[in-house]
Design a protein around this nucleic acid. Structure first.
Lengths: 338, 338
DNA sequence: TTTTGAAATGAAAGCGCTTTCATAATATTT
DNA sequence: AAATATTATGAAAGCGCTTTCATTTCAAAA
């Protein structure tokens, strides 16, 4: 391995000077700078990041802790996150399959031991308190898809309530009055927000919130399937189902098909997330899209900012979701748009 | 940050001894070992990985270089890979969006600079020669989904030809005689292997290989859609389509629907990969499943082996794919099983 | 020309660890 | 009990870099 010493020898300067041209940390005469660059190139020199880290105490690594990679939503997010980080000279260390709060803590501890400069976290199953206390002993933390008031400046979230508004208002606008909802798990912030958006939107529009039309799901395909069956058993007087994520919508689609209810003619169906395959379902799923790219970039930016010690004064605004119209929604039968 | 010195002070031993108990690298009296452990725990000590790396020249990081995360196939693979690595004390540094061979090389160079102990690569667009020459100057390399004879010991692949055999034999067994194929890009090893499996299998069964029944696709949904339209324009006397991955199968499904050809009644359709949403398509897609978990584990094992300097004497066997029967295949009309 | 200050460079310390090498403590053999 | 082998420990070097501090070089001012 080529060391700075060999470069300095070849360029006939001291290692200090080489270091200075690498880091651009003090003025160096143009002619020597060139000699040094040439020597580095000739030798194929790469600074030893261990040595650098040892003295600077910075690794240029950022950790990412997620539950799983299966929710297809993660793929694009991680892509844009990693790209943004790389452009700023950071690397992404990823840890998957952190299902319990203990696992998450252990992983964070390990990443901290590896001297990650910051950690980006999908805090699926940690309480607010745990997160706040975590912040003490961990590198700077960025939270994805989770809002904690005390950590507002470090949260990257989409306006889930607003997403539900979009759905309900759209359905109402084309005449739906009885809109069922398969919510996410209510132990989960995202699940709660989407449900409460549904509820408030309904009330805004002067429609009654009927808890017989709501079933708690678990964000899985299977969960959506079962929830739909339960819904159908209870009553059939709804004309649309709002599933709080696309996976559950896919499950709902299957259940509806088995019940021989056609989508969208008899029942309209809307999802949430705009997962990769939303457009491949049949009928193609109308859903709510999150600005995943922008969110990845923001997460990267927040992480880098906090590494540089910038305290955020005000929380960043939430991202706005967007309704994507496809083929799974139609006006209800026996009704005209209002 | 707690250093080894503070631990050694608290435990009343030298730093050498602390180092020895950390790394278990020489016998230490049981009583002192306990004292040291206690001191470490009391202080919440974490060895500084920079310092360790500086002297051992090992980072315990393994790099992963992929093209994109969109092909849903990657999610589960990365999950199992990361888990296996973590269990052995390694971390995964991931780099996405390496579309060109230059980007890949640059990324590998960077990971090497970061002193990754090994690199796992989906070498989408590198030639065999490039890969071989890469091997010289890079950390140990493991190739995923790519077979290079000279690097046979470091390749983790599924038997793509065999996957195609499975498909063709199954279709033939229920009576199909005219089986169209939407191949992957032929510039790509995977694409070629799957096509050649199709061809050889046809010939084995005494069925003619008809190039009018073959269209080159590009592994995308859109590509599958277009390919199917071309196929339909050419002739309609085939009774089944074998799409060489699930994304193209999804595109084919759409094109068939638009052409008002029902799947599987009029045309049977088979994919390849068993992507997360294969079962969510309508009809649920019959496809070939790769043992993704096992492949992730093997990649991890190979990487670790090569870090430890074990030269593999014989190439690991290919993984066997498996046919997953769902609803997109039926016997052809006007024909009975042979 | 001499003086002065800024710019350019080098010497050396130190980051926190592992690892020889030397020494001290203990166990085993004679 | 003395001699020897074995085990347990410590001192110190060194990994490759950044960074302070001191020194040299050079250009501008006197």
């Amino acid at each position: 391995m080529i060391t700075i010493k060999e470069v300095s020898d070849r360029a006939k300067v001291s290692i200090s000077t080489v270091s200075r041209v690498i880091n651009n940390t003090a003025p160096v005469k143009e002619s020597t700078r060139k000699r040094v660059f040439k020597a580095m190139k000739d030798l194929g020199y790469r600074p030893n990041s261990f040595a650098q880290g040892l003295v600077t105490n910075r690794s240029n690594n950022i950790g990412l802790v997620v539950t799983d990679l299966l929710g297809v939503f993660f793929g694009p997010l991680i892509s844009s996150l990693e790209r943004a980080l790389r452009e700023s000279g950071y690397n992404l260390i990823i840890s998957v399959e952190n299902y319990s709060s203990d696992e998450i803590k252990e992983t964070i501890d390990m990443l901290a031991g590896r001297r990650c400069d910051a950690i980006i976290l999908f805090p699926y199953c940690l309480t607010d308190e745990e997160l706040i206390s975590l912040k003490e002993k961990s590198p700077p933390l960025v939270l994805l898809n989770r809002y904690v008031p005390e950590l507002a400046g470090e949260c990257v979230i989409v306006d889930n309530e607003q997403g539900s508004h979009l759905v309900v208002e759209y359905l109402a606008s084309i005449g739906h009055r009885r809109i069922a909802c398969i919510s996410g798990p209510l132990g989960n912030e995202e699940g709660r927000a989407r449900l409460s958006g549904y509820r408030r939107s309904l009330e805004n529009l002067g429609m009654r919130y009927d808890k017989d039309l709501v079933v708690e799901g678990d964000f899985t395909v299977e969960g959506g399937y079962i929830a739909t069956q339960r819904l159908l058993k209870r009553s059939r007087d709804f004309t649309a189902i709002f599933a709080c994520n696309d996976q559950m919508a896919a499950g709902a689609m299957k259940a509806l098909r088995e019940a021989e209810l056609s989508v969208p003619e008899e029942i309209s169906l809307v999802g949430f997330d705009d997962v990769e395959y939303a457009s491949l379902l049949y009928p193609a799923l109308t859903t709510v899209r999150q600005p995943v790219n922008a969110m990845g970039k923001r997460a990267a930016a927040l992480a880098i900012q906090s590494i540089q010690g910038e305290r955020r004064t005000q929380p960043a605004p939430m991202f706005e979701p967007e309704l994507v119209l496809r083929d799974s929604v139609a006006p209800p039968k026996n009704s005209s748009a209002s």
